[in-house]
């Protein structure tokens, strides 16, 4: 486990990376990338990163795998129907809450 101070240094390092990626390209790259392969690679990066961050982590994100699975299915279904970010996260979270309450009642 790293100390708080070490973590603070890590945060500074990460913040610097954010600035480099968010600001520097705006200042210097004013032309389009011509390399098709690099373009394609960079185009898929966000989806690949988000997917590998989401799965299988999402199944451990609540207090039971069962409620998390139902929440995941609801999130995918609602996002598929074209609902906005806020609707997706609130309804998935609400379903997890309800499922866990039902599970608790059944357990008693």
């Amino acid at each position: 486990m790293m100390s708080s101070q070490q973590f603070l240094y890590a945060v500074f390092g990460m913040a610097a990376v954010m600035v480099v990626f968010k600001v520097v390209p705006l200042l210097f790259f004013k032309k389009k990338i011509k390399n098709k392969f690099l373009n394609s690679f960079l185009a898929y990066i966000p989806y690949a990163v988000l997917t590998s961050m989401t799965f299988p982590e999402i199944f451990r994100s609540t207090s039971s795998v069962f409620s998390a699975t139902i929440g995941t299915i609801v999130a995918i279904a609602i996002a598929y129907c074209g609902q906005s970010l806020i609707v997706v996260i609130l309804s998935s979270s609400a379903v997890v809450f309800i499922v866990e309450q039902i599970m608790r009642m059944l357990a008693n």
Partner: peptide, 8 residues
């Protein structure tokens, strides 16, 4: 994670 799903 649900936010990521809503982006993906």
């Amino acid at each position: 994670p649900a936010m990521f799903i809503s982006i993906i």
